[in-house]
């Protein structure tokens, strides 16, 4: 075995330098040159402030905004670091709910949320994405149906005509490329930025 020691050691060092340092630095340099916006996280800037990333969902709880899908992300409990507390759209700790299809916790969570939506005046069938958590907890999108279902509420909170908001949602729907690649969806942050810009 000892005759293998030198090649093993030397190649490990050389490849660490090549694939572990030279390669990521080369990609970083080229990326900064060719695609600076994407390389830095597709940040969205309004009035000289970073308001988020166009790829990362953020939490909207107010009735004045379109609200994203529920999120299962969490953060360490400030009182007891061995536990976690819910922190929707925590972009420093991505995670899904990992609840299985026959989980009582899942069914109870969805059932409570569905009741709340019905109380708000939503009609069945309810948009499924409005009641299910995404895989990363950071899904930036919602379905067009989900956005349209929220128009009444946002219009009431802002005192705008629902018709105007419905038209706004329509302009924000991104459709599949060439008609079949991708899914129709609405970027929640982009929609809410456009909403703020209405006034």
């Amino acid at each position: 075995m000892t005759q293998h020691l030198r090649p093993a050691l030397v190649l490990l060092l050389l490849f660490t330098a090549l694939t572990g340092l030279a390669y990521p630095y080369a990609v970083t340099g080229l990326a900064a040159l060719l695609f600076p916006n994407q390389a830095n996280g597709s940040l969205v800037i309004r009035d000289n402030t970073i308001v988020g990333s166009s790829l990362i969902g953020q939490n909207f709880a107010s009735d004045r905004y379109f609200q994203p899908r529920p999120s299962a992300t969490s953060t360490p409990d400030p009182a007891d670091s061995s536990k976690t507390v819910d922190a929707p759209y925590n972009a420093a700790n991505s995670s899904g709910s990992n609840l299985g299809p026959t989980s009582k916790t899942l069914i109870e969570r969805v059932s409570a949320a569905a009741q709340a939506k019905r109380a708000e005046g939503w009609q069945a069938p309810l948009p499924a994405d409005a009641l299910t958590t995404s895989a990363s907890g950071l899904d930036p999108d919602m379905s067009p149906k989900n956005a349209l279902a929220q128009v009444e509420r946002v219009a009431r909170a802002r005192g705008v005509a629902p018709q105007k908001l419905r038209a706004l949602v329509e302009t924000q729907i991104s459709r599949p490329w060439l008609g079949f690649i991708g899914e129709p969806r609405v970027n929640v942050l982009a929609l809410n930025l456009a909403l703020d810009a209405l006034h």
């Binding site: 899908r69 899904g96 709910s97 990992n98 609840l99 299809p101 899942l106 069914i107 969805v110 059932s111 569905a114 019905r118 069945a124 069938p125 309810l126 948009p127 499924a128 994405d129 009641l131 299910t132 958590t133 995404s134 895989a135 990363s136 899904d139 930036p140 999108d141 919602m142 379905s143 149906k145 991708g182 899914e183 969806r185």
Partner: peptide, 18 residues
């Protein structure tokens, strides 16, 4: 519970992939 069956099972999935 009233969820739109046309969208399939969306728990733990991202919308953009379909």
């Amino acid at each position: 519970l009233g969820l739109d069956p046309a969208q399939g099972n969306l728990e733990g999935k991202e919308l953009r992939f379909g």
